[in-house]
């Protein structure tokens, strides 16, 4: 670090609000893309597993292996094929969400009591109506719990993509801060990424309680 460089320069933050905002926006965009794509893939995989239970080990096992590969190594494996790009970053980020999301979607759907399913069948619901109107609403809290873990993990991992030329707030931490010997940028990036993780978690929890008003009513009466 250059001698005399203070740990924090408030004036830099004020002068560079646009740059900071842009990186924050990138970070949100990369996280949202990974979680949404990861959720769509996981949802399809979970429905597939429910149709053929024999696939459970194969799907969960593969997702488990992907999850165990260190993030920087997974990026490195992909670079020879997809280059130093947004796509490389997103493929890796999406793969890390699969294990958590598939497992929680399955857990959620399996948590629906058999009597409820029977009641729905007795009311003449088709399989599709039963899934969307009965099973998913009941599974929602467990599914959202998975989404929360996946989102918080992804917010942390997006920073690492700074090492392959992406990174959102990770760009401030690594490129501007560490490589540029400029602590202020590192602190801004690190603190904002923690704040973003906390905010995303609270947002999802809020969305869940909005989508499942009955669970709020129940906790209010008891």
């Amino acid at each position: 670090m250059p001698p005399g460089e203070p740990l924090f320069r408030p004036d830099w933050v004020v002068d560079n609000l646009d740059v900071i905002g842009q990186r924050l926006g990138e970070h949100v965009g990369m996280t949202a893309t990974a979680v949404i794509v990861g959720f769509l893939i996981s949802f399809a995989l979970a429905l597939l597993i429910r149709r053929r239970r024999t696939l459970t080990t194969a799907v969960i096992g593969t997702a488990g292996i992907l999850y165990a590969i260190p993030s920087l190594a997974l990026f490195a494996f992909l670079i020879p094929f997809t280059g130093i790009s947004f796509v490389t970053a997103e493929i890796a980020l999406v793969s890390y969400t699969l294990l958590i999301l598939v497992r929680n979607i399955l857990l959620g759907l399996d948590s629906v009591p058999a009597e409820v399913l029977e009641a729905a069948d007795g009311m003449g619901y088709t399989a599709r109506q039963r899934l969307w109107r009965v099973e998913l609403p009941i599974a929602l809290p467990i599914v959202v719990a998975g989404l929360r873990i996946a989102t918080v993990t992804t917010v942390g991992l997006v920073s690492v993509t700074a090492l392959i030329g992406q990174g959102g707030l990770g760009y401030l931490i690594v490129v501007v801060g560490i490589n540029g010997f400029f602590p202020t940028a590192t602190y801004v990036g690190a603190l904002l990424s923690v704040a973003l993780a906390v905010a995303a978690d609270a947002l999802l929890l809020g969305a869940q309680s909005r989508l499942t008003p009955w669970s709020r009513a129940r906790s209010a009466t008891t």
Partner: peptide, 18 residues
């Protein structure tokens, strides 16, 4: 467990750099 490692490295580094 929720703290991102890169964030921790980034926060500690300016304090111990010298």
């Amino acid at each position: 467990q929720a703290l991102p490692t890169l964030g921790v490295i980034g926060i500690v580094w300016p304090l111990t750099a010298n």
